[in-house]
């Protein structure tokens, strides 16, 4: 039976946050736990499917495979998953071939951790299915299992 991994696990951080914005410190960089994973952004061969644009507009700003802002090695959602999986499976969703529409929908509609829920007005069930098809095809094209 295929194992389903959480998209965004609850963050294993102190229950009371280091302050947002103000307590980031003068460097503007929040202290982060060590993040395993590739030193450079992984190679992603993007499948030419309708879900690509939906993913890029709705998911990739957090779950893309590229670097994060202001020196962060990864985008927030990817980094969170990378920390959780510790290299066991990819943190970047575009390298995941185990996420079908129902699995994605579970997290999209319910949110998890710092990821809020998405409404049908912004991401329809059909959109989620299209993203799932895109992710699977992209992961396969990128030859990562």
């Amino acid at each position: 039976m295929r194992r389903i991994m959480l998209l965004v696990p609850p963050l294993a951080v102190a229950s009371l946050a280091v302050a947002i914005f103000g307590a980031e410190g003068v460097g503007g960089q929040t202290a982060q736990a060590a993040v395993p994973g590739p030193a450079a952004a992984p190679h992603v061969v993007k499948a030419d499917l309708p879900g690509r644009a939906i993913f890029e507009q709705n998911c990739a700003p957090c779950h893309g495979a590229g670097p994060g802002d202001d020196g962060a090695p990864m985008l927030p959602g990817t980094m969170t998953l990378e920390r959780r999986y510790q290299g066991e499976i990819p943190g970047a969703l575009e390298l995941r071939d185990d996420l079908d529409g129902d699995t994605l929908r579970l997290f999209v509609r319910n949110g998890i951790g710092a990821m809020p829920m998405f409404r049908k007005s912004e991401l329809s069930d059909a959109d989620v299915d299209a993203v799932a098809a895109y992710l699977k095809a992209t992961a396969e094209a990128s030859a990562v299992k």
């Binding site: 947002i20 980031e24 460097g27 802002d69 985008l75």
Partner: peptide, 30 residues
């Protein structure tokens, strides 16, 4: 990507240059 400042900066460059991003979500916890 803001990786070449010669000092530790408090500026978040995407926002400073009017480029939308979700990179700030890295500091959202719980």
């Amino acid at each position: 990507l803001n990786t070449t400042q010669p000092y530790k900066t408090g500026i978040r460059r995407y926002g400073a240059l009017g480029v939308p991003s979700l990179g700030i979500w890295r500091i959202v916890s719980g």
